[in-house]
């Protein structure tokens, strides 16, 4: 494998991981305050279609991404209102919303199938750095969204672990009763972060239709929402591990294709399955290591509805 090919492979892996990375970072924020939005795949689908339609009508990918984010936010808020305010079960509502997203996007988007995008997110070569041999091709010839997505986990890590705001977030996810006593509005914070997670998942979805496949098709996200959901667990709720997980899982899907072309003799299914096997294995290993310490890696109130008292 020559170096140019390797560099291009890395560049592709980073590029297609962007949507997963953005969505997973959003999901991390949601889970840190104690909610898991299992409808992530649905939110991404809604964002993908809305972003694509907005891109087609306005001809601007920026507006497309914004529209995707707004739609994702609105759709996630449905989830938030039902689960956080009305305290119903997150799994059932999540499954219901995925079905709604699948059905409505398929129906509304049927006239956009196999239409080429009029606007695409362009690559933005970083001056000087992009002309470096190998590294330049691999890392610095991406879109702006990809660069921002790379920085996102660092920003989230800073907020979570270095600010009072982040301390409050973690408190709400770990012990909502204590946080409530300290005067934080649990429902308000949770709703806010469900919305933030929805924006990020919607932008991630729009990035798929505007930046990766450049077209719309039914179920275009093809499980990327599930992978993003799995990455949060894989990462053990650590923002920087989200970065590792997203690029690792993104690389795997590229490796599956590369392996086919190069004739490695490894079935491509091995690469598609590895993220999920890896996540389950990592979760079990971590739980096994922490069992003796009596600690858990997930936010202690994850998935539990909040009642005062």
């Amino acid at each position: 494998m020559d170096y140019q090919f390797l560099a291009l492979t890395i560049a592709t892996a980073i590029g297609i991981s962007t949507a997963i990375l953005v969505a997973a970072t959003g999901e991390l924020l949601v889970e840190k305050v104690g909610v898991y939005n299992i409808a992530l795949e649905g939110v991404m689908l809604v964002g993908a279609l809305t972003g694509f339609i907005a891109g087609q009508t306005t001809g601007s990918w920026v507006l497309g991404l914004i529209a995707g984010g707004v739609a994702g936010c609105a759709f996630a808020m449905v989830f938030g209102l039902i689960t956080v305010v009305l305290r119903t079960d997150m799994i059932v509502v999540g499954v219901a919303l995925i079905l709604v997203a699948l059905g409505t996007t398929q129906t509304i988007g049927s006239s956009y199938v196999a239409v080429e995008a009029v606007t695409k997110i362009p690559n933005a070569d970083i001056p000087v750095l992009s002309s470096l041999p190998f590294i330049g091709t691999a890392l610095f010839q991406q879109t702006w969204v990809t660069y921002i997505a790379m920085a996102l986990p660092f920003v989230v890590a800073f907020i979570l672990f270095r600010t009072r705001h982040g301390l409050n977030m973690r408190a709400i996810g770990e012990n909502p009763n204590a946080a409530d006593t300290a005067g934080l509005s649990i429902v308000g914070w949770r709703l806010f972060y469900v919305a933030v997670g929805g924006v990020l998942a919607g932008v991630g979805g729009a990035y798929i239709t505007l930046g990766i496949v450049d077209s719309w098709a039914g179920n275009v996200t093809a499980g990327q929402g599930w992978i993003a959901f799995a990455i949060v667990f894989f990462a053990g709720w650590q923002p920087l591990w989200i970065l590792v997980g997203a690029y690792f899982f993104g690389a795997l899907s590229v490796l599956g294709d590369v392996g086919q072309v190069m004739g490695w003799g490894v079935p491509s299914e091995a690469f598609t399955v590895l993220p999920y096997v890896g996540t389950v294995a990592v979760m079990m290993l971590r739980a096994w290591k922490q069992k003796s310490k009596g600690a858990v890696s997930w936010p202690a109130a994850l998935g539990l509805p909040f009642y005062r008292g």
């Binding site: 449905v78 039902i82 009305l86 305290r87 119903t88 079960d89 059932v92 509502v93 499954v95 219901a96 919303l97 995925i98 079905l99 709604v100 997203a101 699948l102 059905g103 409505t104 398929q106 129906t107 049927s110 039914g218």
Partner: peptide, 27 residues
Amino acid sequence: GVDSDLVFAIIGITLIFGSFGEAYARL
């Protein structure tokens, strides 16, 4: 000529109504 996936939306919306019913019973 209707996309048969529309039925998923029907089921999903039905389920969301169910959640509201449950919430009403509990809260």
